[in-house]
């Protein structure tokens, strides 16, 4: 059952990923000073999710894994989104 295939990623590709992550961190910091009202949290979470996805996909080699594993990790994102959304059913309608 084991999938023991190894993958080597070029330093160039890893560097690009790092730069994208740093750029998104810069966006997160910058956007904190922009008044977005109710969307402040949503935007921050969205950027965090994109960064997590990039880390999982590139640094953690998820893009080379089986479809089943990718679906399972995707389900985690869906679950997280659901938990946040349901929590806000309380705060939004209080």
């Amino acid at each position: 059952m084991a999938n023991n295939t190894t993958h080597t990623i070029e330093y160039q590709s890893l560097s690009k990923t790092l730069l994208i992550l740093l750029f998104l961190t810069f966006v997160t910091i910058t956007i904190a000073s922009v008044h977005l009202g109710a969307f402040t949290l949503a935007v921050a979470l969205l950027i965090a999710c994109v960064k997590s996805f990039i880390v999982l996909s590139n640094f953690m080699h998820l893009k080379y894994e089986s479809l089943l594993l990718r679906i399972l990790v995707g389900m985690v994102f869906v679950l997280f989104a659901l938990i946040v959304a349901i929590t806000f059913i309380d705060y939004a309608f209080r």
């Binding site: 349901i86 059913i89 309380d90 705060y91 939004a92 309608f93 209080r94």
Partner: peptide, 11 residues
Amino acid sequence: SGMSDTARWFF
């Protein structure tokens, strides 16, 4: 605990 009614029926 003081949750919204919408949240209560949803849960």
